[in-house]
Amino acid sequence: MIRIRGLSFSIDGLTILEDIDLEIAEGEFVAIIGPNGAGKSTLLKLVLGFLPLPSGSIEIDGVPHLDWLKQHPVGYLPQREEFDRRFPASALDLVLMGLAGDLPLGARFGERHRQRALQALRTTRTEALAKKPIGSLSGGELQRVFLARALVSDSKYLILDEPEASLDMPGTQSFFALLRELNQAGKTVITVSHDLQTLSEYCSFLVCLNRRLHCHTQTDLVNSEIMHKTFGEAVRIIEKDY
């Protein structure tokens, strides 16, 4: 379980997040939604320890998050990862990165690690790309390889920041279908996303964020009033009744 209490965060006097209280239970497929600048990615970065926590607390499995992160790997797919497209790494090298922290300083990867990395690539249906240079992969292929890296350590938490950003519509659908499979296999999936239609189809729990928390509830309990509060009056809600 991830438990956030009284979290506020600001940069240069500008409030990004204000008084956030949130609990995410194990096994959920959580979507964090909100307009641009709502603090969604910042919230993820605080949970993952990329940003220092100025106030409030974050606990993972009852342990302060930074202590937990030192001991446990966590699967993370960033919104945009800075790297040189000509960097001489293969897809397999990239996935092995997810296991690097398990090895002592200076130790080399062994066959056991390579097999685990290949298994992760198999899970994301990219095993055939293992030896390909990362610069030759398409956006969708790269996203699946990054997902394999997030999975290789077998963390029970999988955290994704706008995974659909570099995918087309069919790519997004198949990517979220894969996430659902992983969720059904026991992973807690937390994703930031703008694609409300896809989210409503796949996610079980919705966190509506716009600087403050406007809801954190089961997806089917979110109504138009909450959406208006989150996105402002400009949003047009089309309710579907299947």
Binding site: K70, F87, M97, A100
Partner: peptide, 14 residues
């Protein structure tokens, strides 16, 4: 190798 790839992500992966 991973520091050259991306220092922030290398740190994240412990």
């Amino acid at each position: 190798f991973y520091l050259s790839y991306n220092a922030e992500m290398a740190q994240f992966y412990r």
